[in-house]
């Protein structure tokens, strides 16, 4: 059994056990009914998996010396993802690992690219146009675990996604106008927007599924 397998399969089971232990601690000390228990369990999963994803990604980013880029990418992805949805991996560990690899990979590329006006504004403009197309066509992209069925909710989330991407693009432009300089975060956030918008496309779902499959393969070899 490899390291990946240990971290993945056993880690997953352990995480599930920890959550059950935390829940039974609550049940013994505070009066909670069945409905509250289900909501608390969901909240705990969201909190623990979120912390795990952020911690893994930021620690690797710190080691690689690209913490700022990675953090900014995560912030922009988190905000946009809350409205536009997108592909997810099948398990907590796979999702965290896949996110760590993609975010740090792109954060590193952002660091290496030349910081010139041509490069920055070409990337930002292409990503913006791609994002508008992807959101218009696919957002909000749901998952089998959390389907979005209400037409009203779909409309609201799509509109929010458009607002967020426009705000990002305006923010990049305004930063340049106000401070008269470029910043590597412009490219990093553009990569964040691209990753998020790509994850809502059909090809994005396939890539995420491929990543999931690859991690599973690595875990069992």
């Amino acid at each position: 059994m490899g390291v990946m397998s240990y971290l993945g399969e056993k880690g997953e089971l352990k995480m599930g056990n920890y959550i059950e232990k935390i829940l039974s601690f609550y049940q013994h000390n505070v009066e909670i009914d069945k409905d509250q228990d289900a909501i608390l369990r969901y909240g705990l999963y969201i909190f623990i998996s979120g912390m795990m994803s952020y911690a893994m990604t930021l620690i690797v980013g710190y080691i690689l010396g690209i913490l700022g880029n990675v953090f900014m990418m995560m912030v922009i992805v988190s905000i946009l993802r809350s409205a536009s949805g997108g592909a997810h991996c099948e398990s907590m560990f796979n999702c965290a690992l896949f996110g760590t690899v993609v975010t740090n990979g792109l954060g590193w590329i952002a660091q290496e690219l030349p910081l010139t006006g041509k490069v920055v504004f070409s990337i930002c403009s292409i990503v913006f146009l791609f994002g508008i197309w992807a959101i218009g066509k696919y957002a909000p992209a749901d998952t089998p675990q959390k389907p979005i069925t209400s037409t009203e909710k779909k409309y609201k989330l799509k509109r929010k996604s458009f607002i967020y991407i426009v705000l990002w693009y305006m923010g990049v432009g305004m930063y340049f106008v106000i401070f008269q300089r470029l910043h590597v975060f412009m490219i990093a956030t553009a990569f964040g927007v691209f990753t998020q918008c790509f994850s809502i496309t059909q090809l994005g779902y396939k890539i995420w599924a491929g990543g999931d499959y690859l991690i599973e393969k690595l875990r069992f070899h």
Partner: peptide, 12 residues
């Protein structure tokens, strides 16, 4: 929200 932000999406 549409889905969980950066982490795994558990069953709702």
């Amino acid at each position: 929200s549409a889905c969980s932000t950066v982490s795994y999406q558990p069953e709702l």
